[in-house]
Write a protein that binds this DNA or RNA. Structure first.
Lengths: 214, 214, 214, 214
DNA sequence: TGAGTTAGAATGGCACCACCCGTC
DNA sequence: GACGGGTGGTGCCATTCTAACTCA
């Protein structure tokens, strides 16, 4: 499965998302992370410590892609509208992490609408860096995104300091010694399961269609 | 005075910084904000409510610039290394807002070092979205930036929910009805004063040099 | 006076026009050329030789604009429809150089019509790279543009090899040692005069309106 | 086999080389061309007419790479020194097309030397746009490159107008109706055979090494 | 004078850090 | 002595309550 992570704004946990989804998928099957971000943020993460999967430069994508079952692509920060379509067509699932603040949601809805109009249906919004209750930011953001007619992951990624600790240590959050590490990791595990479930569902419906056709 | 706000990552409060510095300077003298961000984030902020200063498109910069005493330029999100030099030369002060997390600081130090080597000395780092104590993130980030030999503002911008409220309302934070509005606004007032003090100091030293020369 | 030069296709003499109008206006008053083309074509022209006016990067526009009487803006190659309006509003006169071939004229009329509908009336088409008689391309192109209801400069810029020589040498044509240099330069002088005459006329009518109002 | 085509200057036939090598390899086995050039020159070529192989955007590389035996990557125009190493590591063979003029050769030797020092040995220079005899440019260029210790293809690509005709028609030269089409096509066929021979040789030596090891 | 509105104060929940303590 | 778990303190955020103010 090929998953692309893209965002219109930085600082929304794009790299964190790419790293942790790769970590989750690696626990299921051979996974490759392609670092397409010009700041090489994923490669730097790996360099500081150790990530349990292979990370390669985007210019080496074609060479390595065929040797892995899952490929996560961490893209550049600010895709143009026209880039989006290309990105969506280059993967099975396009994940768009977004923080629940006005500026990010603005940027999201403005640009995504064009994607929806293009007929792409292989993308999903992921709410990240969600502040703890009693802040209702997460719920409001979800509402706003759903009202725009965009698909959203059921689970959100909460704001935990342990994610920064993990970036500093160069490991995924599950390998950090911290009381909150488990909670943080479970957020991504839940997202990973949503992804795999979604894929199964797609396959089943495809097979059903195929069976009917026969 | 011409001030440019630029950053390597989004979501670090670039737009918020541009808007509030413009609001502060407007209280001193006629101020123009040039929206150079491709998502037009500043223009959208203004559209939702009312900002106490003029906002124009970057393509109209040359036309309006001469009518104002202060000009704030909100640039695009991800300048290349080579862009940075051009940006620095196009203003009296280049402000680089940064959040105190590892990924942002990485991006900052990597790219800025080249600026320092180029001999530019008209830039200053601004720590933004700093989490409250007892988190020591702000202090650690300051230390890290200072050790890299980069100039930093004394004051930092703290993480307050009221900033998002202000963005939503389309006004500067000082015009929001909220118990924390005053605290948030004072952070930017303090930065504004640091800027004006710095400018005075530069002028004084320039005049002194001139006087000596005569 | 602020003049923007924009075009929908490359290779229509956009840079050549910007450079020579700046050279003409500099002979009247302090003139600045802003290089807004991503390939930095004007800056490269200046780098190869010497231009009799100041050339700056677009990102330094706000800083320098106020120190000059005339500003010529050489924009990026391929503006979108929505960009056009912004460009038109950011200057006193928008010049659209066009070669007299079918493809260029097509692109021109299609896009400009929207400008006309927006009520902008501060733009003018300039026929460039016009082949010598007996080719009637120039006349036909003029007819076609006028029938579309678009304002055109009376004079056209003829196709002269000396323009390429000038670009190579990094100087305006008037400083090239060539028998045709004078003819080529006079084309731009005539355009420059049309521009200044137009401005005077506008001023006179504005003053007349004002007098009547009083 | 994964082949990357890169060059330091534009106008050296990078796109032409990528297209025709892909056309040749397609006649042997399933071949994919990845268009990594920001101006989408290859995609545009394909759009004008029809190319006998699949062309995809670089952002879709990971998705499609695994379904083809050969992959040709047409990279961006102006790689930095640091990019070169990454490019070389991302392919089995890095082809560097160069025209036999002083400026190009200069740029080539300067930058390549670093590659050679890095120990990369999977690259080869291809002389392109070589003018016909009696010009000795081709021979001199080959001499100069060989003296620099760089590997060069035995065959060169000659300058034929039919290449431009092919680009305009959106097909490979072999599908153009022109007396010179056969000659032009044979140049690339010869290069293609050199590449496949080289690969066989590498495989044989690898197997020999392996056999010895056993 | 009463009702609605608004500003300020108090409360509870959560996340973070620091400290303490027990165990190996 | 090092590591892990538990506890307390601080600060932000949202809610609720209360008090004062406005307007009819």
């Amino acid at each position: 499965m090929i998953i692309t992570v893209a965002s219109f704004k930085g600082g929304v946990g794009k790299t964190t998302t790419a790293v942790h989804l790769a970590a989750f998928l690696q626990s299921k099957s051979r996974t490759l992370l392609i670092d397409g971000d010009p700041n090489r943020s994923t490669s730097n993460w790996a360099k500081r410590g150790h990530l349990p999967f292979k990370v390669v430069d985007e210019r080496q994508a074609a060479m390595h892609a065929r040797d892995f079952d899952h490929v996560i692509i961490d893209t550049q920060a600010r895709p143009e509208k026209e880039d989006l379509e290309a990105l969506a067509q280059g993967c099975h699932l396009l994940i768009l992490p977004t923080t629940p603040d006005v500026l990010s949601l603005d940027a999201l809805t403005l640009t995504i609408t064009s994607l929806k109009n293009l007929g792409s249906n292989n993308f999903k919004v992921l709410l990240t860096v969600v502040p703890p209750r009693p802040s209702r930011d997460g719920d409001e953001a979800r509402l706003s995104v759903e009202q725009a007619g965009l698909p959203v992951f059921d689970r959100v990624i909460r704001r935990y300091a342990v994610f920064q600790k993990a970036a500093l240590a160069g490991v995924p959050v599950c390998n950090v010694n911290d009381p909150k590490a488990k909670d943080a990791w479970e957020d991504y595990v839940a997202i990973g399961k949503e992804i795999l479930d979604g894929e199964k569902q797609v396959r089943r419906s495809t097979e059903a269609t195929f069976a009917r056709a026969v």
